[in-house]
Nucleic acid binder design. Structure first.
Lengths: 357, 357
DNA sequence: TTGTACGCGTTATCAC
DNA sequence: GTGATAACGCGTACAA
């Protein structure tokens, strides 16, 4: 019941510390510390002596001790809903990439779950003295996050009481819908979940609604929970598809679906029924997830620039964390909500064929 | 240039420590410590007094100080290649989930990169005194990992000198190929990267080869680097597809593709050319990635049980970490390589239509 | 059941 | 340039 193989048992010896280096070189621990934090303040000779000792003894830095002494963990906490939605996977991946460039490490939690579990995660993070927090999960209200006494940034979730970075969902909704109008659709249809108006993604609905009204065209919203798993989404999409088939047959339909995963489900239903995309179906998704271009028929979508979102979030968080280090923390009383532009990506599902400009 | 909003500035006061609790209650710091680690050793009365003080002062535990004193960080380091391949995203997600059940937290690094960068990540992790390491990234040779003086588990990568958990790739290769034989294919084709024989995934090639030889059927291997991005894979897949079209037209082809992302690319090429899957094309992928069932035509594949892999890896790692805590670390000199079964998933791309049993 | 004293490995402060 | 010493917050012998 004991399973640890490793190369050299002799490595098991205790770790080398500043004290060891001090003893070896004849300098004090203070000088050793300076060697690592402010080498220039030492004579070249001294530096060389210590360098040699570090190498010979095989010293490895101990961040924990440093943290206890100076308080800087260089750790950021992240709570993500899950990686089942590609969007989150990309976002996380970019966040870590950018964060590492700033020299931060990340303790990551996944939390699809209830508020209590997430609360536990949050206090764990606080116990490790994380310097900042990035919240993508949406189960904990921003009001509570704001009480956490640590810099917090949220991304694409309710953000009433905290700083945040979000995609310009409204703009995306406008662009998607306007595009459907532009290519000559006669009926505008929007499929989305039953979102709260405080959710940033609700902007997609507002955008759709605004253009739909302005256009004067017939329009329809299907706002009902679709789910996040393929099966569930399919289950819920079938009746919607049937309803569309029944009520809008013959008319040129422009359908804007809330996200690419769901858009792909609908596209599959259409293709499986007709074996091709009929001319009276125009489809656009949201996110620019891989599925939008990996499908047999790559479909139009609104691109979220996750890289830009990650960069913006990190930059903002770093400022907040830096501000905190001053003797008197610099604090902005006004909240900051950054909004990152989206982009219209036109693919084969919304190309106009028989229409002229 | 100062961006930190938070609810209550008064929270900014210094953190409550054991010393504060001791002062407040009149007990010693030791007693406070016992309250958290071994409450039963205190009188109920004492417990209650301390509990009240904890609540009143709003004490929050400080793991870092505890770690410095007792050495247990409860942190595991993970290095993942990227989240661009769904497989890794799922694996990571399961690892964190299982690890949290054991009470561990994870510092996560993504590393597509060179060995030097990864080396830096590894020493960062060591500097934080992580208790264990899970390596999924494959750029650092296992020989080096074994020298790290910390329990290490690798997953689906070269593992000559460390303990590991892998899917039964060989079994998967056998099953996929045998299935193609069973449904009456006349030519067996395998598409894969130019893998090293030390890579666990090479087992897929071995499995294919074995059945191909036994069957006596005509067979062909396309072993060349495909890439991990859709575009690249498509670029590389086109000539292969053309070659297959040219050389094996008219014959019933059973094609086993190394992973679902690539299989989907090939399926798209076929569907885009024929607008349906011709009867003489039988296709099977590997991994059971979402794309395998989210495609218009869900395709057959070999399922990797990432949940089981994650559980097994964590269980093994926990044992190694526990063994290490004994006064004399318990160490197994023999390496352990666990292998997790795979499963054949039959979908529409390998159904036999015109054949009888 | 409770307390004393020291250690964990580094940084900060002040002195020389 | 360099050093002594006191933190940092908690765990743990050992003692009472």
């Amino acid at each position: 019941m004991l399973y640890w193989h490793y190369e050299a048992e002799k490595n098991m010896k205790k770790k080398v510390t500043f004290a060891d280096l001090a003893r070896k070189t004849g300098f004090s621990k203070t000088t050793i510390s300076r060697y690592f934090n402010n080498a220039d303040s030492l004579s070249l000779e001294t530096q060389e002596i210590i360098r040699a000792a570090v190498e010979e003894l095989g010293y490895k830095e101990n961040k924990l001790a440093r943290v206890l002494a100076n308080g800087r963990t260089e750790i950021i906490g992240v709570v993500v809903p899950s990686l089942y939605m590609h969007y989150y996977a990309y976002l996380l991946s970019h966040l870590l990439q950018v964060g590492e460039e700033y020299g931060y490490k990340f303790i990551v939690f996944f939390s699809d779950e209830d508020r209590d579990t997430e609360k536990k995660y949050l206090s764990e993070l606080m116990a490790y003295n994380v310097e900042g927090l990035i919240m993508i999960s949406h189960v904990t209200p921003s009001k509570e996050l704001s009480k956490l006494n640590v810099p917090v940034i949220t991304i694409e979730r309710e953000d009433q009481f905290v700083n945040s970075v979000n995609a310009n969902n409204y703009q995306g909704g406008l662009m998607a819908t306007r595009h459907l109008v532009d290519i000559g659709c006669e009926v505008l249809i929007h499929i989305n979940g039953d979102l709260l108006t405080t959710s940033p993604a609700y902007g997609r609905i507002r955008g759709f609604r605004e253009i739909a009204e302005k256009s004067g065209l017939e329009s329809r919203e299907y706002l009902t929970r679709l789910g996040i798993k393929y099966r569930d989404i399919r289950e819920n999409m079938i009746p919607i598809f049937e309803d569309i088939e029944k009520n809008y047959s013959g008319k040129k339909k422009g359908i804007f679906v809330s996200n690419d995963t769901s858009a792909n489900v609908l596209l599959n239903l259409i293709l499986q029924k007709y074996n091709r995309l009929p001319d009276d179906y125009k489809l656009i998704g949201f996110d620019d997830s891989p599925i939008s271009w990996e499908a047999v028929m790559p479909f139009s979508t609104i691109r979220q620039d996750t890289r830009a979102i990650a960069e913006d979030a990190m930059e903002m968080l770093v400022r907040m964390m830096d501000g905190r280090k001053h003797r008197i923390p610099i604090i902005s009383k006004s909240l900051i909500h950054h909004v990152i532009d989206t982009e219209l990506i036109i693919r084969s599902t919304t190309e106009k064929k028989e229409n002229n400009e």
